[in-house]
Amino acid sequence: MALLEIDQIDVFYGDVQVVFGLSLHVEEGEVVSIIGGNGAGKSTLLRTISGLIQPRRGEIRFEGNPIQRLPPEEIVARGIVQVPEGRRLFSLMSVEDNLIVGAYNRRADEKKQQTIEEVYALFPRLRERTAQLAMTLSGGEQQMVAIGRGLMALPKILMLDEPSLGLAPLLIRDIFDTVRKIADQGTTVLMVEQDVRHSLSLSDRGYVLEHGRTAMEGPAQQLLDNPHIKTAYLGL
């Protein structure tokens, strides 16, 4: 049984359909990338998994149970945690408060002192900035807080929506290294990215989304070697 299974979902914004009969699955311990251009439906997919939008048809199963009708807070409580696109930090709250809010769900709340130490160990920079307001941080530091806040919820699966967005190339490498580290510590990762080369090279498998449909799927290395991906996404 896959940890997360998406079965033939259709998602609409009002009358406009954005996701068409999409299926995918993520096994425990895997790192899976979803790649695709703007408007392919990648973020919509993550928002649907998180319960911010409900699919009109199809089923989403987590640990075997359907979750597509649950509210977002219940989905977080079950262990599906999203680090949203553009980071979405609580701008007027301190770094520490941002992290603590991440551990809001009951399961994580009990262990928050321990988890926050782990997050600071992963991002030593944040320990120096605990009292600083989130909006005064640099882009890279903000992404660290966003990922740290996601980890505070003790995710069984961590979903990252474009973690490299708007960061300098050097920082992008740092962030992807961190994602690899998180995965190596045993967290399952589902990542949406436009930086195809970096994200696929650290993933086990990948899906290519085009116009709200799965255009291709397979082991990450195989996708990287695929001629269509080379021309369309890697510019080779």
Partner: peptide
Amino acid sequence: SLDRDAASLQGIN
């Protein structure tokens, strides 16, 4: 109060 969607994603009802 700062970002209600982001708050939802932290498990806040």
